[in-house]
């Protein structure tokens, strides 16, 4: 029996097609599980898919290079999706014009807080430089976060995981925490979710309030641009 499986597995395991199918199936499974959990942010399809694929890789002794030979076709689309973020950003330009000073100040303050506190806490607790650099861009939308991390010498895979974890945390606690500080304006909720928790937190706000959704989209796009400008400069100073 196991000989038959090995017979089938050995030639399959090296074709790129197998790992493309595994990745798509794991993500579809993650989506299904999130729906089954009533859309809970805990059941992130990305995290579930990473766990499933990771488990299959480790248990079959597959190297990351072999896996990536198949998965690179999906990975390649990170570039075009980053460019595509211009569409929601441009559609909300009118909102930026109307609240330019509020948005500008809040964005700058929130973005700097995220980068400096992330790097600072890692440094204070004795973490390594590469972990600190991977932490710096983690608040922005994952494709931009990974590109910036790669640029400054962080570990893009670590940054991707941190971005997802931060997004889940922001989605879970954001609304209640801000309500406790008497913040009831959805423009503030939306922008904060977009700046601090990118797509995952933004989706949570977008499901509740339409204005919040527009400001969350703005927060994601503008913080992506600002962080991509700011973090490489700050990283160049910190040598």
């Amino acid at each position: 029996m196991s000989a038959t499986i090995r017979h089938l597995w050995t030639p399959l395991s090296t074709t790129p097609l197998l790992w493309l199918v595994v990745t798509l199936a794991a993500y579809a499974g993650g989506r299904w599980m999130q729906r089954a959990c009533g859309g809970s942010p805990f059941a992130s399809p990305v995290l579930i898919a990473i766990l499933i694929v990771g488990t299959i890789m480790v248990s079959t002794g597959t190297s990351y290079d072999t896996y990536f030979a198949g998965a690179q076709f999906i990975h390649f689309l990170l570039g075009p999706v980053t460019v595509a973020l211009a569409v929601p950003l441009a559609e909300n330009f009118a909102l930026v014009r109307r609240h330019i000073s509020s948005i500008g100040l809040a964005l700058l303050a929130g973005s700097l807080t995220s980068v400096i506190s992330g790097v600072g806490i890692v440094w204070l607790l004795g973490g390594s430089r590469s972990v600190a650099l991977s932490m710096a861009p983690k608040a922005v939308t994952t494709p931009i976060a990974m590109a910036v991390s790669h640029q400054i010498g962080g570990v893009p895979a670590l940054t991707a995981s941190l971005a997802i974890l931060g997004g889940i945390l922001a989605a879970i606690i954001g609304r209640h925490m801000l309500a406790r500080f008497q913040i009831d304006d959805w423009r503030a909720h939306g922008l904060a979710a977009g700046v601090a928790g990118s797509g995952i937190a933004a989706a949570q706000v977008a499901a509740i309030d339409e204005i919040g959704a527009a400001f969350a989209a703005l927060g994601i796009g503008l913080n992506g641009l600002l962080t991509a400008l700011l973090v490489p400069l700050l990283a160049a100073l910190w040598r």
């Binding site: 990745t23 399809p45 990305v46 898919a49 990473i50 999906i74 991707a160």
Partner: peptide, 12 residues
């Protein structure tokens, strides 16, 4: 977009 993070995320 989530699907597109999986290949890099598996690098974890």
């Amino acid at each position: 977009m989530g699907l597109l993070f999986v290949p890099a995320g598996v690098g974890i």
